[in-house]
């Protein structure tokens, strides 16, 4: 290999600074959430304690954190399942052209890049005019899907663009039905990517704010609850909550990535059984 050029080191330093820029602030509040009981929102640390975490578990003025966490978690799972299932269906359909596919594609892109507040406002208006009650599990979930589905669908497009169709043809030649081909050939091959779609579905829903603002009803989801806290909570309890949910998100993310990695490893090990069936 040729030696590293000078520009490599300059760029590596730039990249390092970028990573520091990305993670530094969050690490800071991670540290500050262990402030002593009389510590403030900034350094210096006034002793070290778990006082503020303890505060979170006390039923008190901070609001309904655990209720909103439960709602966000359930909603995240619901959005995740819908995102995975509908994205795969869309990805399968879009492998061949059908009437309206071009229009639908642009609709999906629109859904992704439209300012979130328009979804929030529009859905809120519809429910208001029809005199329906907005609720996180109905209007909230639909609004979130307009954000998570396009990500899932675009990932599936990318996956199927790289998909080797000869596997399917082989299955069909051997007499597999459409459903058998999907169930036993296509789905196992794309499984690691499905984990990726699920990761998008859950985390984007779990952290969604703008599209849920007017559509979640009287019961807040966790991001709405946290934002409410920023206006009236001025103690490190805010950091403690931030640290906890970030750690929770990280566990979810790393869990998903680990599953995807293991699936891919398994595929590689079991992947080629060419010839082993011949006797």
């Amino acid at each position: 290999m040729e030696p590293r050029s000078r520009s490599f080191y300059a760029l590596a330093i730039f990249f390092g600074l970028f990573i520091l820029f990305l993670y530094g602030p969050v690490i800071t509040i991670g540290i500050l959430s262990f402030q002593g009981p009389r510590g403030g929102l900034t350094f210096p640390m006034n002793g070290v304690s778990v006082h503020w975490f303890y505060d979170l578990f006390e039923k008190q003025a901070v609001g309904d954190i655990w209720g909103s966490f439960r709602r966000s978690f359930v909603l995240g799972l619901m959005v995740m399942v819908c995102t995975v299932v509908f994205s795969v269906m869309c990805g399968l359909a879009f492998r061949s052209r059908f009437r309206g596919s071009g229009l639908l594609f642009y609709l999906i892109i629109t859904s992704l890049i439209i300012p979130s507040i328009l979804i929030s406002l529009g859905v809120g208006l519809i429910f208001n005019i029809l005199d329906w009650e907005v609720h996180w599990s109905t209007s909230g979930m639909g609004s979130q899907l307009t954000w998570t589905l396009p990500f899932g669908i675009l990932i599936m497009f990318a996956v199927f663009n790289r998909f080797d169709k000869s596997y399917e043809e082989a299955a069909r030649d051997l007499g597999a039905s459409w459903w058998q081909t999907i169930r036993f050939v296509v789905l196992p091959i794309i499984a690691p990517s499905l984990i990726g779609v699920a990761l998008f579905g859950f985390t984007l829903s779990y952290d969604e704010f703008a599209r849920t603002l007017l559509t979640s009803g009287s019961k807040n989801t966790l991001p709405l609850e946290i934002f409410g806290m920023t206006t009236n909570v001025t103690t490190p309890v805010l950091y403690a909550l931030g640290t906890l949910t970030t750690v929770f998100s990280l566990i979810i993310i790393l869990g998903f990535l680990l599953i995807a990695y293991l699936l891919r490893r398994r595929q590689e090990r079991h992947g080629s059984d060419a010839g082993s069936g011949l006797v």
Partner: peptide, 13 residues
């Protein structure tokens, strides 16, 4: 994949 709100809050300190 983490919360935007918390990433904003984290600039305070």
């Amino acid at each position: 994949w983490t919360s935007n709100i918390i990433r904003m809050i984290s600039w305070i300190p």
